[in-house]
Amino acid sequence: MADDQMIAGEHMIFDLHGFGPALLAGTLMTIKLALSALCLGLVLGLLGALAKTSAHKPLQWLGGTYSTLVRGIPELLWVLLIYFGTVNMMRSLGEAIGVEGLELSAFAAGTIALGLCFGSYATEVFRGAILAIPRGHREAGQALGLSKGRTFWRIILPQMWRIALPGLGNLFMILMKDTALVSVIGLEELMRRSQIAVTSSKEPFTFFLVAAFIYLGLTVVAMTAMYFIERRASRGFVRSA
């Protein structure tokens, strides 16, 4: 009798009412969205940092405006603005090229919105890393006859990555959790799949708890990956120290 009650209790705890594959698909979509936004955000962050550290005032203004403007507006609003704000623009573009019903997908809108937000914060991380590199390193590159581009690529960039990695890792943890915001525009990532399962099963605690553990697991995996990346990036620095 006790064994039957234990089995029944375990069944109640782990019964996902057939939504297990849906949650797995949502998890994969979350990972895909986070990595896509990360790639876009790294490019925007690096460009923003180069603009803010440039000797040209217009570039400094452009980089500062980007980071201030994007960071001053909540991520959720960026998701909504980009998704709904491009409706008329995409419709007009579709009419111009003869394609009916042209629209920006929820995945593309989420990638752009989260990438913009990640890039605005990454701009400051990259900027701090660039400023932390001694000026003598640039002068050494010039003394060796390297152009400014090759000096940046061969001397500044490798050191900048090592310094910026801890900050970028923290931003990626935030980015992974912010993917849940894209559920408001219908993208079926983990949070959206969990909400659908809750609506069908009327068991919010079960599915939101499962989603919480999945997010926690993704965070642990990302932290482990960042540890090995930082360790590899610091190999030569550790030996010299």
Score class of each variant (00 low, 15 high):
residue 1 M to R: 03
residue 3 D to K: 04
residue 7 I to W: 11
residue 7 I to N: 07
residue 11 H to E: 05
residue 18 G to V: 08
residue 18 G to C: 10
residue 19 F to M: 12
residue 19 F to I: 05
residue 20 G to R: 13
residue 21 P to S: 06
residue 21 P to H: 09
residue 22 A to W: 06
residue 24 L to M: 15
residue 25 A to D: 13
residue 28 L to A: 14
residue 31 I to T: 09
residue 31 I to W: 09
residue 31 I to V: 15
residue 31 I to R: 03
residue 34 A to G: 10
residue 37 A to S: 15
residue 39 C to K: 00
residue 47 L to Y: 02
residue 53 T to C: 12
residue 58 P to H: 00
residue 62 L to P: 03
residue 70 V to D: 02
residue 72 G to M: 03
residue 75 E to P: 01
residue 81 L to G: 00
residue 82 I to H: 06
residue 84 F to Q: 06
residue 85 G to I: 02
residue 85 G to T: 08
residue 86 T to D: 01
residue 87 V to F: 12
residue 99 V to D: 02
residue 99 V to T: 11
residue 103 E to V: 09
residue 107 F to T: 04
residue 110 G to K: 07
residue 111 T to D: 10
residue 114 L to I: 05
residue 121 Y to D: 09
residue 121 Y to H: 11
residue 124 E to D: 06
residue 131 L to M: 12
residue 133 I to G: 01
residue 134 P to L: 11
residue 135 R to W: 00
residue 138 R to A: 12
residue 143 A to L: 09
residue 144 L to P: 00
residue 144 L to G: 04
residue 148 K to F: 06
residue 150 R to W: 12
residue 158 P to R: 01
residue 159 Q to K: 12
residue 161 W to Q: 03
residue 165 L to N: 03
residue 185 I to M: 08
residue 186 G to P: 03
residue 187 L to K: 12
residue 190 L to S: 08
residue 199 T to H: 01
residue 202 K to H: 15
residue 203 E to W: 04
residue 204 P to G: 05
residue 205 F to V: 15
residue 208 F to H: 06
residue 211 A to V: 14
residue 212 A to G: 13
residue 215 Y to N: 07
residue 216 L to F: 15
residue 221 V to C: 11
residue 222 A to Y: 02
residue 224 T to Q: 05
residue 225 A to I: 14
residue 229 I to A: 13
residue 233 A to L: 13
residue 236 G to Y: 11
residue 241 A to W: 04
residue 241 A to D: 06
